[in-house]
Amino acid sequence: MTRYGFLGAGNMAQAMIKGLLNAGISAQDILVASPHSAAKLAKELGIQALDATELLQTADLVTLAFLPKQLTAISQSLPANLYQNKLLVSVIGDVNLNSLENAFPGAQIVRTLPNVNVSINRGMTSYALATNLTTASQTAALAFLDLLGSRIELAESNFAVFSALAGSSPAYVFAFIQSLAQAGQQNGLSTQDALTIAAQTVLGSAQTLLASDSDPTSLIASVASPGGSTEAGLKALSADKFNEVVIHGIQATIDHQHE
């Protein structure tokens, strides 16, 4: 029985907790510490609210889910013996492994970037492992991530790109679905019908790609017959520089992280 602790109760922590519950983890094995939100979240989800010291003493795996600016204050407030050899999984976006290791010396640390889809166990998470990580800690950390969806190991230098593609892009996908639905509404569909059709089509198309040995170009060709209505729509998107717009949005997201 693994007990999962969360230091912080923000949006990502809540999404991960919901994913664990969906995966069948007992609410009694999920612990949260946050001075302002833990009690409310515990009441809502049936999990346990503890203070940070109690959480470190009780949990087998602790997710660091607080704000980057809180790193020093939180790490200095905790007795060092409580995190020695403790498995800490960070979801603090802007804090690298070196900074985490300096803040929690002697801990077993994994840096991750999940996206919001972890709440329904369809997340995409990048991870990087500390050099001192034991085999047992690595196994436990990856098993934890597997409960929440898919994972990919990346160099930390690629985390900004991953954050744009996986972390921010759900918002862009929602915007695309909204645009598809609006086109449906303008042509007579109800709001709910248009949203259902658009969302299910995007979901099915993504699953088709992942299940296929083909690339997107080949799959586009399989749908768009020469001279047909789909090709007409693709030409209109191309004329409006659809690809360039998407790439520009992702690049702006990446660039903003470096400002």
Rank of each mutant, 00 (worst) to 15 (best):
A13W: 01
V245D: 14
G167F: 00
Q182K: 13
A15Q: 00
D60E: 10
S225Y: 08
F144D: 09
D255S: 12
L203R: 13
A199R: 06
L180S: 05
L203F: 13
Q200G: 08
L133P: 03
P68T: 15
V173R: 02
G19P: 03
D193T: 12
M12Q: 10
I25T: 14
L87W: 00
V202L: 12
L45Y: 09
A38N: 12
A128I: 00
N243A: 15
E101P: 04
F159E: 06
N187D: 08
T191V: 08
I17L: 12
G188H: 06
L82C: 08
E231W: 10
A171F: 04
A236T: 13
G149N: 11
Q182H: 11
E54H: 12
S168V: 04
L56Q: 12
P68C: 13
L87P: 00
E54W: 06
A206R: 07
H256C: 07
L67T: 15
T139I: 04
N187H: 14
G233V: 06
L100Q: 04
E153T: 00
N158L: 10
Y83C: 07
L100P: 05
I47N: 05
A130R: 01
L195E: 14
N132R: 15
T135P: 02
N132E: 10
Q207R: 15
A143C: 02
D146M: 04
E156T: 01
Q14C: 11
D213S: 12
A128H: 05
T134V: 06
V202A: 09
K43M: 11
A80C: 14
P35R: 15
L56S: 02
R151E: 05
L219C: 09
G19Y: 03
R111Q: 00
L61V: 05
S218R: 15
V110G: 01
I47T: 09
L180Y: 06
L78E: 06
N98K: 11
N81V: 11
Q185A: 07
M1Q: 11
